[in-house]
Design a protein around this nucleic acid. Structure first.
Lengths: 242, 242
DNA sequence: CGACGCTTTGACACAACTCAACAACCGTGG
DNA sequence: CCACGGTTGTTGAGTTGTGTCAAAGCGTCG
């Protein structure tokens, strides 16, 4: 993967879908504000906010989620470097989810109005964004299926297999090993389980010799076995065009 | 709502977001093939298919879903008249979900290539589609939250409240009463429950005087009570622009 | 040093699933 | 007209997966 040709992770990502012209790349870089550092735990968007701003992650871990009236929360996704968050809220009236940093991170904000003007001028950029949004939605759909129809252990296995693929695509690990700062509490909110049950599930995965999670590092010990366990099909993560 | 000015439900829907010019409306109507009738139970897209086709629903009920290796399935959404299905698979390599008719329906197919050319020529149409896709994604997100963090009875209540709102927006019912041909088996696959448990849950809702489901008709007896039960916030269904 | 967050474990409660049976409904064909 | 099979809905009894509560070990950081 070429790292130096593009001045932003977003440009690099969209480029894999659709080769962009210099003008388009320039436009893309102009709409991104100067990167800023965000401290772990800081909120960037609150549900109900009307700012019409999106964010591009350059480095670090973040999550988008919704809080429920009953005091629980559901994590929707973990955007990784190169991903956008809040593209939806550019067009919708209000942000339909919150968004916060899980580790110290570097992000650029993107003004919604800029995006719209940009898309009018360069329709191909609009298509590229639509593609990126499609890919994000495919991940949310898979997440829905995961929670709706898989047991705790299958869910957990599937989650980590997807994460492994996403991370290795952007060069932050291999399919068998990667850094992962997610606490069991956070995992629970993503998987629709309790932190305590996540703990039991991780133990089960360890005792079956399938994978381990220790000190922020995930190791897949038996890739084939894990895939068999949860029926993982990573096709929806494809980065190539159709 | 004006019914006669537009020759397609899709045009009418997009128009509520962004007033479209006659040229744009013409383009939109041209990319939709002549409507065809689809028999109940017929599949329109199979997961893994590479046809690059989308569909617009004109009448009838349909669902998009994924089958799992373990024999279960998860329903993703119930597209209603005016909704598109499979927009994602226009840009992604393969369809990431299946799609079938629940009742006899009328749909138009839309060729992916046409959409792309159309968007290049009329960028504003691209924005309107991006908006429609955003709204769909917001519903999937809410569905995810629903299954991940609500109990069976809350889930079911929330599902029907959302459905009531969607149907009354398009004039197919009121917030308190509407026709609904979904069997308990289908509901179960949507809600991540068993058909048997759906049955018990509906009984509970009935016995609490909140709502009834009988013979294809849903009646909300206590709207405020239902809202309180599940913490329903319908904001993500907004049809107005931001 | 103490406070705090994260992890781990055990005993118990409860929500949801499974299995089994039966009733109600429907279109079909005799 | 009625008998029929298939689909859908209903109910009960027992099981299992996951949540709840309580407690303790461990790191880290102030």
């Amino acid at each position: 993967m070429v790292h130096t040709r593009f001045d932003s992770v977003l440009a690099r990502k969209l480029h894999t879908f659709l080769p962009l012209t210099p003008d388009e790349l320039k436009c893309l870089s102009e709409i991104q504000a100067t990167p800023l550092t965000v401290k772990r735990g800081r909120h960037l968007v609150r549900e109900g906010q009307t700012g019409h701003k999106a964010f591009v992650i350059h480095a670090g871990w973040a999550c988008s989620y919704k809080d429920l009236p009953n005091g629980t929360r559901q994590i929707i996704s973990f955007p990784l470097p190169g991903d956008c968050v809040g593209l939806r809220s550019v067009l919708l009236r209000t942000a339909d989810h919150s968004f916060s940093a899980l580790t110290d991170s570097i992000v650029s904000s993107v003004d919604g109005g800029h995006v719209l003007r940009c898309v009018s001028e360069f329709p191909r950029l609009g298509m590229a964004l639509l593609w990126a949004a499609s890919r994000d939605e495919a991940m949310v759909v898979e997440h829905l299926v995961n929670i709706g129809r898989r047991t705790a252990i299958e869910r957990t296995a599937h989650f980590f297999l997807e994460l492994a693929d996403r991370l290795s695509i952007i060069g932050l690990g291999t399919p068998e090993e990667f850094e992962c700062p997610l606490s069991q509490t956070v995992l629970a909110d993503a998987l629709g389980l309790t932190a305590i049950h996540v703990n039991r599930t991780l133990r089960e995965l360890r005792e079956q010799g399938l994978m381990t999670v220790q000190k922020g590092k995930v190791q897949i010990k038996d890739l084939a076995g894990l895939r068999r366990l949860c029926g993982f099909q990573g096709g929806y993560l494809d980065t190539s065009d159709g």
